[in-house]
Amino acid sequence: MADGTKIEWTDATVNAVNGCTVLSPGCKRCYAMRQAHRFEARRGLTQHTAGGMVWTGEVRLNEKALLQPLAWKRPRRIFWNAHGDLFHENVPDAWIDKVFAVCALTPQHQHQILTKRSARMRAYLSDPRMPQRVALVCFDMNRAGLVKFSALFAALGDRERDEDAEFVPIPLANVWLGVSVEDQRRADDRIPDLLATPGAVRFLSVEPLLGPVDLDIFPVFGPSRERLLHWVIVGGESGHGARPMHPAWVRSLRDQCADADVPFFFKQWGEWLPWEPGCPPEWQSQSGLREDHHALFPDDIDADPKWDDGIWAVPDHDHFAFQRVGKKAAGRMLDGATHDGMPA
């Protein structure tokens, strides 16, 4: 857990559930999977293979981290489980109930929950028994003295623990539910589940973006004109073995969000900085640099590990190139602007 984080779109992280399993191409370079062995409490969650560190599928609940938001009075945006997936198949419903109980007891915070297991999230939030289970966990936390003050219990007065309690309103107004997608196939698989999940705020984390994604095929509004999608985050991959992200893919998502009036947050280019033709003979990078193209490129761009000509990514696109400079140097400027859109 961390009160303060380098993740650009949140204020704090709470790693109540740790451990996962590789599910799709976006998991290949998972930073949490690479780092888990460095922490004593997470050892055994990964194992060495010929391809590097890989999740074992074991999951663990960190009770201390779970309860931390109860002690935070200043409002924060809290990202849950950066080192796991709350809706992983090995996570019991009882653990998920505890997370939602903490969310219900801390209305001062905005809780951000992101998953690749969209079908389970949809089933869990649609279960008519879920509000009662969460309510009972809230009462138990109150009885145990874990909740020093909560607007929820202040409104209830001296009400006793009730097996039929239904006072936890679903969807919770302060919970943001998101799915992670990296390409069109994963978008087609997961976004329909997200849009059908009861939620006050629904969002997409399109990171690492590994190919073009068309969001226009999904409804932004429901049958009663209620908004179904509230936020889109986009980012490239960083770290060892990171894959480049084509600027055309990012521009497309930016423009789709603008057309649909959905807040757009561009998180990072990742490891690779794109260069594209500017005013001839200059080329310009997404960090704002300009260079004469004759001086810019090595003699054999494909033989230099710091450069990638990008032809593999979009064969029919005008020529471009990626320079490997690291996440910090690549930055998060898109066509000269930063994009920090957030849900209202």
Rank of each mutant, 00 (worst) to 15 (best):
L177I: 13
G178S: 10
D183S: 06
D183P: 01
D183C: 04
R185W: 13
R186K: 09
D188L: 06
D193V: 01
D193I: 03
L195G: 00
L195H: 00
G199T: 08
A200H: 14
V201H: 05
F203I: 02
F203G: 05
V206F: 03
V206H: 02
V206G: 01
E207Y: 08
P208M: 07
P208E: 06
L209K: 01
L210C: 01
L210Y: 00
G211N: 01
D214S: 10
L215P: 01
G222E: 08
G222Y: 03
G222M: 05
P223V: 06
R225S: 07
R227Y: 04
L229S: 01
W231M: 07
I233W: 04
E237V: 00
E237N: 02
E237W: 00
H240T: 15
H240R: 14
H246Q: 10
H246M: 10
P247R: 12
W249Y: 11
V250S: 10
R251W: 12
L253F: 07
R254M: 13
F264W: 05
F265Q: 07
F266E: 09
F266A: 09
F266I: 08
E271D: 15
W272A: 11
W275K: 03
P277F: 05
P280V: 10
P281I: 13
Q284R: 15
E291Y: 15
H293L: 08
H294I: 13
A295H: 15
F297W: 14
A303Q: 15
A303Y: 04
W307G: 10
